[in-house]
Amino acid sequence: MQRDSTRSATRDPGLLILASLAAGPRHGYAMVEDIAAFGGGRLGPGTLYGALARLEEGGLIEPLDADDRRRPYRITQPGLTLLEGEIDALERVVHTVRGRLAEPTG
């Protein structure tokens, strides 16, 4: 997954897709709805499929058999490993920043 250091991790389409697929295989529309439901914003169809193509090429997700016109995707083990690493990094940042915000400024 290509990372843009200037973009919030919580707005990275690739990370959001991996987070959505961590709950199980989903097709495009279900991913958009799920990501919107957990607060990641509503991904446009082009953004979603641009990210899906890159994730698939990177071996982080894999396509399953098509269901009518829709094709579900599943996160792979490398995808899970990457997602866990990203979440750990985010947690460290959140923990550090929360601590700093709690400290009295002076």
């Binding site: 709950a23 199980g24 295989p25 579900p72 899970l80």
Partner: peptide, 10 residues
């Protein structure tokens, strides 16, 4: 992740 037989979101 769920197995392919379970298709949440489909």
């Amino acid at each position: 992740i769920d197995g392919p037989e379970r298709r949440p979101g489909t």
